[in-house]
């Protein structure tokens, strides 16, 4: 038991001394994960769109060549960035560019390379998710859009992607949560995220385990809040299951048979008098029913 007490006091010690750097670490982690997921999704959607450009054998050879080329490029991009560790991609970019250009091109800060690496990494995963999302949409939707003369881009942006977006929302959430955790590898290029705060704290205090406990709790809190929010967004996206009938429209088919709620004879089902009588009688019935009980 006293071990737990010691852990508690160590954590308090850590937080009082390094609390600020933990907080700013959390901030940086969340910003990087959010921005990276967002840009990654954009990349994914663009790749998904490029991947599904229709191309028939009867099309012009030049068009077919370019469609093929685009597909090949997207494929290579996905395979390379999905198939290598993010930590190495960061190193490759951060140290590789200055190496090749004799320091002519180098990153002055850590934000841009970190964001670029996280974004293109997420993009590679999202490209496949988006492709899956697009494939999962009934081909009839595309045909319906084509039949009214929409182009591929119009079909995608107006009809397919909004539906695919809803379907791959769980995937986006997945990627965001993965990014919250995996941005911790960005310490390699000096990015001050939540995990970097841990390294800094233990470097000075040697309280490895208490600091790791803080990290664990911190990451779990972030991801739990994230998955809660994502569920909520999904629910919002699904929208209301009911809809409003527009019966007050003067020009509907029912015009002529049914004009206005307060018009008509007292025998008319929808007249004011009829409704008033009805509510009156309903009230009375309820009253007697309750009385008998």
């Amino acid at each position: 038991m006293n071990k737990f007490a010691q852990l508690g006091s160590d954590i308090v010690k850590l937080l009082s001394k390094y609390g600020g750097s933990y907080i700013s670490g959390i901030e940086n982690t969340l910003i990087l994960a959010l921005a990276g997921t967002f840009i990654g999704c954009l990349i994914g959607f663009i790749c998904g769109m490029l991947n599904t450009i229709p191309c028939a054998k009867t099309d012009h050879p030049v068009k077919r060549f370019f469609v093929g080329l685009i597909r090949a490029i997207v494929r290579v991009y996905v395979e390379v960035f999905r198939g290598t560790p993010m930590v190495l991609q960061a190193v490759f970019m951060y140290y590789g560019l200055p190496y090749f250009t004799n320091n002519a091109v180098k990153f002055s800060g850590y934000w841009i390379p970190a964001l670029v690496v996280v974004s293109i990494n997420t993009g590679a995963y999202m490209a496949e998710s988006v492709r899956g999302g697009i494939i999962s949409i009934d081909p009839g939707q595309t045909e319906g859009a084509k039949a009214i003369g929409m182009t591929h881009v119009q079909t995608m942006t107006n009809v397919i992607l909004p539906q695919a977006f809803r379907n791959i929302m769980p995937q986006i959430g997945n990627n965001f949560i993965i990014n919250v955790k995996d941005t911790s590898v960005m310490f390699i290029i000096g990015f001050p995220d939540f995990f970097a705060a841990h390294r800094a704290a233990v470097g000075a205090s040697y309280l490895y385990f208490p600091s790791a406990t803080v990290e664990m709790a911190g990451y779990l809190t972030m991801t739990l809040i994230a998955s809660f929010l994502l569920r909520w967004i999904e629910k919002k996206l699904d929208g209301d299951s009911s809809f409003e009938l527009v019966l007050d429209d003067q020009l509907t088919m029912t015009a002529g048979t049914y004009n206005h709620p307060d018009k008509g004879t007292p025998f008319d089902e929808r007249s004011k008098e009829y409704r008033d009588n009805l509510t009156e009688s309903m009230k009375n019935r309820n009253f007697t029913a309750r009385g008998e009980r």
Binding site: Q141, G144, G149, P162
Partner: peptide, 30 residues
Amino acid sequence: RSHVGMVFQSFNLFNNMTVLENCMVGQTKV
């Protein structure tokens, strides 16, 4: 295609839009 309308066996209405939007999107976009 915009001059030749088509009605499908399986309707193919756009599921992400309301009835009105379904009938408007072609007009505004195409």
